[in-house]
């Protein structure tokens, strides 16, 4: 991260502007329609939970909202042996 550079150079306002633009774009969208990143997160977890019982300690989720792309990372540890729910798929 090049954050510290700005302390030496002065001129930190452009960084502030860029950070705000990215953040506000997401926040404004979120207040008019559900935030896509959050919808994806919830649905992905729901799908996985349908097949195995999710241990919250074995799930790591991170987001990095950016422009032009955001990253949603869902990291789930799936035990090799697990009980298929009785009504489970396939």
């Amino acid at each position: 991260m090049s954050v510290f550079r700005f302390f030496r150079r002065g001129g930190s306002a452009p960084v502030a502007r860029e950070r705000l633009q990215i953040l506000l774009a997401h926040e404004r969208k979120a207040s008019s329609q559900p935030d896509l990143l959050n919808v994806l997160r919830e649905e992905i977890l729901a799908v996985v939970a349908k097949h195995i019982s999710l241990d919250p300690d074995r799930v790591r989720i991170s987001m990095d909202r950016g422009d032009p792309v955001s990253v949603l990372e869902v990291d789930i540890e799936i035990p090799n042996k697990f009980d298929m729910p009785k009504s489970g798929a396939a």
């Binding site: 954050v3 950070r19 990215i22 953040l23 997160r41 919250p56 300690d57 799930v59 790591r60 989720i61 991170s62 987001m63 990095d64 909202r65 950016g66 955001s70």
Partner: peptide, 26 residues
């Protein structure tokens, strides 16, 4: 989150934890 420079990384928050939607560690 903004002052700490973590605004783009917020997934869950205090209220999600209180309501049981997320674990604290998440």
């Amino acid at each position: 989150d903004l002052v700490m420079g973590a605004e783009r990384r917020v997934v869950f928050d205090l209220i999600n934890v209180i309501q049981g939607v997320a674990k604290l560690s998440q």
